[in-house]
């Protein structure tokens, strides 16, 4: 359990609703689970958080922004993941269109929501760590 989830657990109703929301985002049928996982990991790397659940070779590729071995959908999602934390105004219409073509309108909405909240989770995690809240 991270500092963030530990803190959230102090408001059980809110924690329950957050879990339900995140589950609906990550479980959306139009977005492959690995695409979500890769994007979450890359956003964690950008924030200086070590991701869990992926092999070392994949993490090295992500850190190097070498998407050559990934699918076109994964590369499209990662292109937005790369910018969403600190360069959100640099996300272009073409970036979004690439994702939309890969996963459709519903998948595009689901993935953009996921990326936004992966960024939020990282910020909350770092904030709660810095505050040493428990």
């Amino acid at each position: 359990m991270t500092e963030f989830t530990s803190l959230l657990a102090q408001r059980p109703a809110l924690a329950e609703r957050y879990a339900a929301f995140l589950s609906s985002v990550q479980g959306h049928a139009a977005v492959p689970a690995r695409l979500n996982e890769l994007c979450r990991a890359r956003i964690q790397q950008i924030h200086g958080i070590t991701p869990a659940g992926l092999d070392e070779a994949t993490l090295v590729q992500l850190a190097a922004t070498d998407y050559s071995s990934f699918t076109s959908a994964e590369a499209a999602g990662l292109a937005i993941a790369e910018k969403i934390s600190f360069q959100h105004h640099g996300i272009t219409d073409d970036d979004v269109e690439q994702v939309r073509q890969e996963v459709g309108n519903d998948g595009c909405v689901a993935l953009l929501t996921a990326l936004s909240f992966y960024d939020v989770e990282c910020r909350l995690q770092l904030t709660t760590e810095a505050l040493n809240v428990d």
Binding site: S23, S24, D106, V109
Partner: peptide, 19 residues
């Protein structure tokens, strides 16, 4: 736009209302 993914919008609304 979020209505493309209505379940996500519903869950977001529930989360946001609690918050």
């Amino acid at each position: 736009a979020m209505m493309h993914a209505p379940d996500i919008l519903t869950r977001f609304g529930e989360l946001y209302a609690d918050f």
